[in-house]
Amino acid sequence: MGPRNLPQEQPQQLFEDAPDAQAQKAQAELEATVLRFWDTVRKSADVIVTLRQENAILQAQVQSLRKSETELQSRVQDFLERIADLETRMSTAQGSVVHHQEQIASPAIAHERQVVSNVEAAPYQPDNDELNARAHDATERAQELMLARELEHEVEVRSLRKNIDRLEDELNRLQNELNEAQGQLTDHKVISQQLAFVRTELEARTKLLQDLQITLEENRNQRQLDIFSSVVQPGMAPAEMVALASRLDVLSGRISSLFGIS
């Protein structure tokens, strides 16, 4: 509020009814009015902020609801498609079941239809005993038909069980053969390793034998020469060579028998 001069500061305090008092009263009223207006402005600001917050919350809820609506619509559409698919599959299955039942019960149904047609073709006679008898016969036939169907079903079940048992036996047999084949495969690996070792050994012995044969030939030639020279040369005794040859023959026979080489 703007400053006002104090009464004692006025140049002349000569007016009637204290004009400065009136001015101060007007000033107080003005200040009170401004303060009341400030209160109204502050309350209005609070209302504005509250409304803005509520508006933001509502906007978020609207967005969430729109998103949920889209998701729900897609889910409903998916459910409708699944229902239509299930209805189609159900109608197909029902048609298949009806067809199958007709095929199974066609002789009995034909017989029943024949009976019914005979009954319908017969002249109407309101004889209660006859009607009761027919009803009794029809009930018995229906029971017989149901019993026959149960028996057929039991027979089918037994046949299926037999087939299952047979398949299980076959499966067990194949499993055993597979186990044997695996065992043979393991043995074959071991035998292959032994064969490689024996072949190596055989090659070494063969080479040794060839060397001995060469040495033997050389000794024979040398002896023929010694007949004329009368000079005795040291060499392998014949008995020793025969023993070595026999050992080689035995070893060759064992190898041949081991691998089935003829």
Binding site: V41, S44, V49
Partner: peptide
């Protein structure tokens, strides 16, 4: 004051 109440971040 009212402008701030209207425009200030919530």
């Amino acid at each position: 004051y009212l402008e701030r109440a209207w425009r200030q971040p919530l």
